[in-house]
Write a protein that binds this DNA or RNA. Structure first.
Lengths: 157, 157
DNA sequence: TGATTTTTGTTCCATTTGAAACTATATAAT
DNA sequence: ATTATATAGTTTCAAATGGAACAAAAATCA
């Protein structure tokens, strides 16, 4: 299998992904930050708690690809903003369960359609068949990258 | 055209792109940071100067999707590490041209094959036809997203 | 020419982020 | 039971990042 020998940043997959991802994220963030004053990690927490109420910090961290420090901070901010409520677990004194407040639920209900609309707009670049194909390929790449990562960790252990 | 009404983060395009992009970038970065002690923005500068020697800071910023502050800092760091050299322009007293030093060129020569190898590994998830298709769709999405961004800026002006 | 505006790049300050150390609770092992 | 180990979450400190104000040179224009 032949391989390129020079590197054009504009054609380089990691670079293109990074730029596209940043542009999509900031497009989306520009909508909810100015309207609701929440950051990207805060929005992710709201989104995941909207889907699955009562999660603990650790559960959120694993679902949202944030580290536990980032979760702690997002929780603190969202509690200050009265969008999230914390209730300590009876079963385990170390953990607490997190839920959206009424106000948090309202933010969720307002942002979800906006977020889906942005996604829909971006999908507008592709026809339905292309979209399905893209989804499939994206999944393949995701799996491949996480395999590569595991291999690398294994080697460096 | 029908539209989803609920948001599953794992299926949400901006989220998936962000996770994939971060994983790819950190996979790559783990290789060159530990070997050469350079950061992601520093590597991008080296990459672009390897392709096009003599660029100015502003030219780099526009090619690499970094803001000018980030470029200033990356340049400072790379000059301290003696990987980049600055020479002021005769034509324009404000700008200076940047070039890789011998050592910088060596870093470039060493990292490029590693970077291409990682890209190649990731591409391994797709067969050649899929890869071409993916490239085409990625380009479509890039164009779409930048159009959306321009529209949004236009509205908010 | 002299005044004004733009462009280039840097500095300063505040905010964000990340890693390591730490506290508190729970689990396992002897 | 006592000790050791693991897990959940927080705090602390240093580094990275972003934006606004800034200085210097160039371009515009009156």
């Amino acid at each position: 299998m032949e391989q390129k020998s020079s590197l054009q940043l504009q054609d380089f997959l990691p670079y293109r992904l990074s730029v596209l991802s940043n542009n999509v994220s900031s497009l989306l963030a520009s909508l909810y930050t100015e309207k609701f004053g929440i950051s990207i990690p805060e929005w992710r927490m709201v989104a995941v708690l909207g889907e699955e109420p009562g999660l603990t910090s650790t559960q959120i961290a694993s679902r949202v690809a944030m580290d536990k420090v980032a979760v702690t901070r997002a929780v603190q901010n969202l509690i200050e903003k009265r969008l999230v409520r914390r209730s300590s677990s009876q079963a385990d004194g170390r953990v607490s369960h997190l839920n959206l407040t009424k106000a948090g639920q309202r933010v969720y209900d307002d942002v979800v359609p906006m977020a889906l609309a942005v996604e829909h707009q971006v999908w507008g670049a592709l026809n339905p068949a292309e979209k399905d194909y893209w989804d499939e390929m994206l999944s393949k790449m995701e799996r491949r990258v996480s395999t590569l990562r595991d291999e690398l960790l294994e080697i460096n252990k």
